[in-house]
Amino acid sequence: MRYGLILLLFHLLCTCVRAQDTPREVLLRLFDGMRSGDSTGMAALFHPRASLNSLGEDGGLQQGSIESWLTALNQTAPGTLDEQLHYTEIRTDGGLATAWTPYTFVLNGEVHHCGTNAFQLMQTTRGTWQLLNIADTRRTTGCTLPDTTSVEQELRDLADGWHAAAARADATTYFGMLSDSAVYIGTDPAEHWTKAEFEAFARPYFAAGEAWDFTARERHVFYDPYATTAYWDELLDTWMGPCRGTGIAERNAAGEWKIVHYTLSVAVPNERMEGYRALIGKE
């Protein structure tokens, strides 16, 4: 009997440690506990000196109590509180981690407010992670529920939408999908443009309603574990013949994907390389 109890306690201890192996797992436990209305064991997620702060729409700072928050949470019916994350970005250096999580807070099934959580976590001497500080912003306007579209599909939609905007000569949408610091590299060796330079070059074509029509027949998409930076390569059907394109995109502060770099090159088949070299005077 005693042996069985020891095994059970050992199992529970190992489960608790495993559940705090990474900063992401700590956050998952935090939000799962909120949704379930059960704060049992959640105190272990927090460092004894952890702080809780909230920045309101008026710029005022409100300081909260972790203990009071956990007590109130335990008195809340399951399903009452649901903090839905748009995405999670985590950065770590040694025993310090910072997480950035834009969220929408749902109360009793209705959108209540939204904002961004900024978490700081530290790794203990036992190797587990604990929350050191939570700060958030809160607003009641412009709140939307997280998009359930997969990250890969978001990026495919971004690339397809960008090319489609050019095909219909929609300059506002096309250049709006580029970040302000974007770089576009065209097929000509001289075409290394900033966004402003590229827009100046392309403006006459868009104004005449005769911008280019590129269609992807093949695309490969890649993104980092936190879905904040992505790139893709694609094989395009164009008026020039087959081309290769490579795009890089980043999420901005609003969580939107913006294209920060794009390179376009003409795809010359190997068996036609000699003719191409002759064409450009490289025989």
Rank of each mutant, 00 (worst) to 15 (best):
G4T: 05
H11A: 14
R18P: 00
Q20M: 14
D21V: 00
E25D: 12
R35I: 00
G37F: 03
T40I: 05
G41Q: 08
L45F: 05
R49S: 12
D58T: 11
L70V: 10
L70R: 12
H86N: 09
I90Q: 04
W100A: 02
T101Q: 14
T101I: 10
P102D: 06
F105E: 03
N108L: 10
G109H: 06
G115T: 02
G115R: 00
G115C: 07
T116H: 09
T116M: 12
A118N: 06
T125A: 15
G127E: 13
L132E: 11
R139Y: 06
T140G: 04
L145F: 02
Q153A: 13
L155Y: 07
H163V: 01
H163S: 11
Y174A: 09
M177T: 10
L178R: 03
A182M: 08
V183T: 15
T187W: 05
E199I: 00
R203L: 08
A207G: 04
W212Y: 13
A216R: 06
H220W: 09
V221E: 10
F222E: 15
A230F: 01
D233C: 03
T238W: 03
M240V: 02
G241M: 01
P242A: 02
G245R: 06
A254W: 07
E256V: 02
I259D: 04
H261A: 08
P269H: 03
N270V: 08
Y276S: 02
A278F: 05
A278I: 06
G281A: 10
K282A: 14
E283Y: 07
